[in-house]
Amino acid sequence: MKKLLSLLCGVLSLFGLSACDQFVIEDLKPGVSTAFEVRDKLGPPGIEWRNDDGTVTWEYTQQPMGTTCYLITIDGSQVVQKVEQVLTEAQFTRIQPGMNQDQVRRLLGKSAKTQYFQLKNETVWDWLIDNTAAAEPVYFNVYFNPQGQVLRTGRDIEYKGR
């Protein structure tokens, strides 16, 4: 079965589809998998952060079309320590007024889109999120003031014309 999924993923990748990332992510085992395996299976990260404890965190997002963002933490021995899908309710509640844009990016990964509202003088970052209860796409929003600090969060449903 695993060989069939690998073959299917290979075929889909020829068409530029990344739907098979989920299968690859599930194969990564903290304490066992290596940084080399991560790069081999997922390619280079979208961004890399050096952490105070000597580890490094790599971001793999499926935004703007997908609803996941994985942060993979790797230790100094190049072994995966943590694989975390961060577009979750628990992560959203961690976003608090006063946080800066770098702090938000470290918690949620790259946003799907950014908008600027001139009349309110606010910048809004939007993440497409998994919400199977809604028929239309749902976005988690973070609103920033001109200094790049969080003002509030919210959600929007992108209604399609009927």
Rank of each mutant, 00 (worst) to 15 (best):
L12K: 09
K2V: 15
F36R: 15
Q78T: 08
V104T: 03
Q103W: 04
T61N: 00
S13G: 03
L7Y: 12
S77L: 11
L108P: 04
R50A: 12
Y60V: 03
V24C: 07
I25C: 08
E136S: 13
R105L: 15
W127S: 01
A90E: 14
E158F: 11
Y139M: 05
L128C: 01
V79I: 15
Y159T: 11
C69V: 09
D40F: 13
D102G: 01
L128T: 02
R105G: 00
K3S: 06
L108I: 01
G98M: 05
L87F: 03
C9M: 10
E84T: 14
G46S: 10
S111E: 15
E48D: 08
V80Y: 06
T73V: 12
G148F: 02
F140M: 04
Q63S: 08
K82Q: 13
F36W: 12
L71V: 03
P97S: 03
V86Q: 04
I47G: 00
D126C: 12
Y139N: 05
L17N: 13
S33M: 12
A134I: 06
L42W: 05
G109F: 05
D130F: 09
T93N: 07
T67D: 10
T93E: 13
N100L: 00
E26W: 07
I157Q: 11
D102C: 00
G66Y: 06
N121I: 08
Y116C: 07
G154K: 02
V56Q: 12
W127R: 02
V83R: 00
L8S: 12
F144D: 00
D27Y: 07
S77C: 06
V83W: 07
Q78S: 15
S18V: 10
V32M: 10
R106S: 06
T68C: 06
N145P: 01
A112W: 03
W49R: 14
T67N: 05
G161D: 07
A19N: 13
L5V: 13
L42F: 07
E37P: 13
